[in-house]
Design a protein around this nucleic acid. Structure first.
Length: 254
DNA sequence: GCGACAG
DNA sequence: ATCTTGTCGC
């Protein structure tokens, strides 16, 4: 077998990100994105992968489509997949995007009218080392509007978990409150959002594709029943439930 | 060399 | 990502 140093892989992936980035579209492109109440938006999607404890190559890939604004499940796709790429911070898309695109293609092929008008992705969009996170990657390759939502802060481009950052989190008083994630360049790459009155820890929202940051934040807030926006939360809950029933732990009492 | 490292 | 139950509080 030929050796393929991680160094080479990273070089290849870096140039691929730069190439795909040229197709990235920022800003609102649909009428519903401009509407105060998102009139015209009927379907929101969410994707996620879940793993079995000691196995990092086999995973359960999940795509859900919820009605908007009710946030009720109207479509679900659950599929066991074998991942070929390793997880490397900054290159999450190369690991997770292929199986998510396949899920979208199955939906496109069988029930195209149920395709989501926007997809919430677990991970960052523009808030990324090279401003091209997994939400941008999936957006460009699918052509669909995407929003990146990270549950943990990626310390990038000068944004750190500093006293200043902690202080800004403390200043988020109610659901919907935000503060910008500003790169050293001065560019706002995303926003920290207190997603509900009850949750203290913010989520980090950034543009994936074909949507503006303000619209992404506003819609994310509108989709939060709990800390994590419902489309992603449903995808997470359902993929884990699938693994729990299909692959029960082997080493637990009998 | 040290620390950071979405999922 | 996963490891993990009960517990404290509203």
């Amino acid at each position: 077998m030929s050796a393929f140093p991680q160094e080479d892989l990273i070089k290849q992936w870096t140039s691929e990100q730069a190439s795909l980035k040229q197709q990235l579209v920022e800003g609102d492109m649909e009428e519903w994105q401009r509407a105060p109440d998102f009139k015209g938006l009927e379907r929101v999607g969410g994707v996620d992968l879940s793993f079995i404890k000691g196995d990092d190559t086999n995973a359960c890939a999940q795509l859900v489509v919820l009605s908007f604004p009710e946030l009720e499940l109207i479509y679900e796709d659950t599929q066991m997949v074998t991942l070929s790429a390793p997880y490397i911070a900054g290159f999450l898309a190369f690991r997770e995007t292929p199986c998510l695109l396949e899920a979208l293609q199955r939906l496109q092929r069988t029930q195209p009218k149920l395709l989501p008008q926007v997809i919430f992705v677990d991970g960052n969009g523009l808030f990324h080392y090279r401003e091209f996170g997994v939400a941008c990657h999936l957006g460009v390759l699918s052509g669909l509007p995407c929003i990146g939502v990270a549950k943990n802060l990626l310390q990038v481009q000068g944004v750190t978990r500093s006293e200043e950052h902690m202080s800004q989190i403390g200043a988020l008083k109610k659901g919907g409150d935000t503060f910008p994630l500003t790169a050293a360049s001065g560019r706002v790459l995303g926003k920290a959002l207190r997603s509900s009155d009850k949750s203290t820890k913010p989520i980090y929202v950034s543009v994936g594709h074909r949507i503006s940051l303000d619209t992404a934040v506003r819609l994310t807030h509108a989709c939060c029943r709990y800390r994590v926006p419902e489309p992603i939360r449903q995808a997470d809950v359902r993929s884990r439930e699938y693994l729990r029933t299909q692959f029960p732990s082997v080493d637990t009492c009998g």
